[in-house]
Design a protein around this nucleic acid. Structure first.
Lengths: 129, 129
DNA sequence: GTGTGTCAACGAAGTTATTCGTAACAAAAC
DNA sequence: GTTTTGTTACGAATAACTTCGTTGACACAC
């Protein structure tokens, strides 16, 4: 039986997913090296997490020339959307828009980013007509 | 010593904060009643959380005619901003804008909300000139 | 004053998340 | 062939979060 999708990845799991999303695929050692740049982390700690994530179905692996090569089993964008939905639910009365506004408020956007957002808005407006 | 601000409120704490933000102030019983509408919750469970939140400094209370009346000690908007920053950090490489865009993507906004966002954008644009 | 109801305090237990030591194993180096 | 190195697997310790039963204090009704 699959886990309920209500459970989000933990902080540690998300860090590892981030590395796998960036690299596409990686061994435990590679993930460990990447994470070590940001903060002290034990190799077996990372390994353990990745084993747990296998059990949860968050990542997949294949054996290749003696080592395991891991890949994310969940797409980055979908996971981000879930996390946003989840946070909107928990802290914004369910409104992803309120969340978006709070995110925009405290931010210096580049003109390119502002354009991107405007296009999104236009699309949204078109969508409702 | 105060807790590091890095620790976000837990899910349960956030639910309680939400009620207190809405009501302004409330007793344990009132919070419990509100939460019970959404899901089964034990009274002493809520009480325990609120005692823990007192210890953490998330809420304050005053004794009033035999019962304790609680209030949030952290402002709603500031907490929301922190949570957004935190999620941006953990899942969007630190970019609150990427987060905002992801939030806007999967959303049907009302015209009023779209206007509000446009005004925010205009402000942002003015801000950088 | 005894009973009833409301509430706060406390302690304990269950669950999940985090961390890492130790062992097992195989390939490569010697 | 023994040692070293890089890896996976396992198990356990700790901490954080969640849940609730039990107890005791107080006040109001009778």
């Amino acid at each position: 039986m699959p886990r309920p999708s209500s459970s989000r990845p933990t902080d540690s799991e998300l860090e590892i997913l981030g590395v796998l999303w960036d690299k596409g695929a990686a061994t435990v050692r590679e993930v460990h090296e990447e994470l070590s740049l940001r903060k002290p982390t034990g190799y077996t700690t990372v390994l353990k997490f990745m084993q747990i994530m296998m059990d949860k179905g968050l990542i997949t692996r294949r054996e290749q020339h003696r080592v395991h090569v891991y890949e994310s089993a969940v797409p980055r964008e979908a996971t981000q959307s879930e996390l946003v939905r989840d946070l909107a639910q928990r802290a914004f009365g369910g409104s992803a828009l309120e969340l978006a506004m709070r995110a925009l408020e405290s931010n210096r956007a580049t003109p390119g980013e502002l354009d991107k957002i405007r296009r999104l808005l236009d699309q949204a407006e078109k969508g409702r007509r």
